[in-house]
């Protein structure tokens, strides 16, 4: 088989894998800190895409897409914080008994609300900003400029996220909340504020993925649906609550989907990811980096 072709598949798999990582890290981060699963992550991906498109077409113009990106991420993050403050905070102030069910119902309702709001506001049509940059050649391999921007943008975001959570005071507070909420509270950490910020950062990451990929995958009301599925696939592969697991899981999923298309058939691309998921579950039921826990 042609090595250039295989290299091109690997490159395509890595690019999409890194984007998957951003989504999965967002889901895992929210789960780690708040102990809840946000089923509306795909909708924040969609919102990021719409914000990016609107900022570029209505205000900043196509040449200043790089200014639109942080604004779109900020917009998605702020919306997330508002939603956490209004709809999810009651979970953590003793007003709700069945926390998991409450979070599931609220976030699933949000998916329906946001999809329908998108249809009402923008119609059921597809939109696409212009490509962020012209195509480039990586050796013999052509790469679309927007995909390159998405790849670099995702790497930068993950880097900033890693540095922010590891070496800043606030990052330590977030990690403390993730490890032991009661302990963090007794250490004087303002948990409600940490929760709000964690939710904002998590959905901001989803919004970033949507904004980065807006010219590649188009923006439309259901554009987040598949990314949610992929995101959850990755966190199960990597291990629920594990940030390194999310990154490795995302890259693995991107590569398996891409290489499965070369060696088997591209018709069953999505099946390869689920095959990987089943294999991991059979070998390591808690995922690659997940920890087996027992509850009394």
């Amino acid at each position: 088989m042609d090595t250039t072709l295989i290299a091109q598949y690997v490159l395509a798999g890595l690019v999409i894998g890194v984007i998957y990582c951003v989504m999965a890290v967002g889901i895992t981060f929210i789960y780690s800190v708040m102990k809840m699963i946000n089923w509306a992550m795909g909708e924040f991906y969609m919102i990021g895409g719409y914000l990016q498109y609107l900022l570029i077409t209505l205000w900043l113009g196509p040449s200043r897409w790089y200014l639109a990106l942080p604004l779109a991420v900020l917009g998605a993050g702020l919306l997330g914080m508002l939603i956490q403050r209004v709809l999810l905070r009651p979970m953590f102030v003793g007003q709700v008994e069945r926390l998991d069910e409450y979070a599931t119902i609220v976030t699933i309702s949000l998916t329906v609300l946001f999809r329908n709001l998108a249809i009402v506001l923008f119609g059921p049509y597809q939109f696409s900003p212009r490509d962020y940059a012209p195509a480039v050649m990586l050796g013999p391999l052509p790469l679309n400029g927007s995909r390159l921007v998405a790849l670099l943008g995702a790497i930068v975001l993950l880097g900033v996220f890693a540095v922010g959570t590891r070496w800043t005071w606030f990052g330590r507070a977030l990690r403390a909340a993730a490890q032991n909420r009661l302990g963090a509270l007794s250490a004087g950490i303002n948990l409600p504020w940490v929760d709000t910020l964690a939710f904002g950062i998590g959905v901001g990451l989803a919004g970033a993925a949507g904004a980065l990929l807006a010219p590649v995958f188009l923006v439309f009301p259901e554009s987040g649906a598949l990314s949610t599925v992929k995101g959850f696939e990755i966190i199960v592969i990597g291990g629920l609550g594990s940030l390194p697991g999310s990154i490795v899981g995302g890259l693995l999923l991107g590569l398996v989907e891409s290489l499965g298309s070369v060696f088997f058939s591209p018709s069953f691309r999505d099946v390869y990811g689920f095959g990987l998921l089943l294999l991991i579950l059979a070998l390591r039921p808690a995922g690659l980096w997940g920890e087996q826990t027992r509850e009394a």
Partner: peptide, 20 residues
Amino acid sequence: AVVFDRTSSDLTPQLLKFKS
């Protein structure tokens, strides 16, 4: 002929096959 899932957003692998 290659058949793809209509919910897929990334059709690059299928198109790369054609390109080759």
